[in-house]
Simulated assay, not measured.
Amino acid sequence: MRLELVIIIFLLFLNIPVYKVLFRVFFVDNDDYNETVRHTFTPNIISLFRGEYWKDKLNTTRLQFFIMICVGIVVLEYLVLNKVIEILA
């Protein structure tokens, strides 16, 4: 259990450059990211009344994909690394 946790933490830190590249793919700059987070936490009904409903939906989806891809990368790397350790042991 401890080894698995150490491997996951190691992979999280090792992938920081990958997260930065993905960040630039999904978001133009930090202001774009901040607006995306703001839309994600704004209820849809409020965005509807502000006339930003579809922008809210797009930004929420964009942030969700960014998070899913970052988590997916770590999970896939962990599975591959775990299989390699299993084969070598």
Rank of each mutant, 00 (worst) to 15 (best):
R2L: 10
L3M: 11
E4K: 14
E4V: 02
L5N: 14
I7Y: 05
I7R: 15
I7M: 12
I8Y: 13
I8V: 14
F10R: 13
L11K: 01
L11A: 02
L12T: 03
L12C: 03
L14V: 10
L14Y: 13
L14Q: 10
N15T: 01
I16E: 09
P17L: 08
P17N: 05
P17E: 07
P17I: 03
V18F: 14
Y19V: 09
Y19P: 01
K20C: 06
V21N: 12
L22C: 11
F23T: 02
F23P: 00
R24T: 07
R24N: 10
V25G: 04
F26R: 00
F26P: 00
F26C: 01
F27L: 08
F27I: 12
V28N: 11
V28S: 10
D29E: 11
D29H: 15
N30I: 07
D31V: 09
D32H: 06
D32S: 04
D32L: 01
N34I: 02
E35Y: 07
E35A: 12
T36V: 04
T36N: 04
V37N: 07
R38K: 12
H39K: 07
H39A: 07
T40M: 12
T40F: 13
T40H: 10
F41M: 10
T42S: 15
P43N: 09
P43F: 06
I45N: 12
I45E: 07
I46L: 14
S47I: 08
S47H: 05
L48Q: 11
L48K: 15
F49I: 13
F49H: 02
R50H: 06
R50C: 02
R50W: 03
E52T: 15
E52W: 03
E52C: 12
Y53T: 03
Y53P: 01
W54P: 02
W54C: 01
W54E: 14
W54Y: 14
K55L: 14
K55S: 05
K55F: 08
D56R: 02
K57F: 12
K57C: 02
K57G: 02
N59W: 00
N59M: 03
T61M: 05
R62T: 12
L63A: 12
Q64W: 09
Q64R: 15
F65A: 02
I67G: 00
C70H: 01
C70I: 01
V71A: 03
G72W: 00
G72I: 00
G72D: 04
I73N: 04
V74W: 00
V75N: 03
V75G: 02
L76W: 01
E77S: 02
E77V: 03
E77R: 00
E77P: 00
Y78T: 06
Y78F: 14
L79W: 05
V80S: 03
V80K: 12
V80G: 05
K83G: 04
V84Q: 11
V84W: 01
V84G: 11
E86Q: 11
E86W: 07
I87W: 15
I87G: 05
L88A: 14
L88W: 01
L88T: 10
A89Q: 12
A89F: 11
A89M: 08
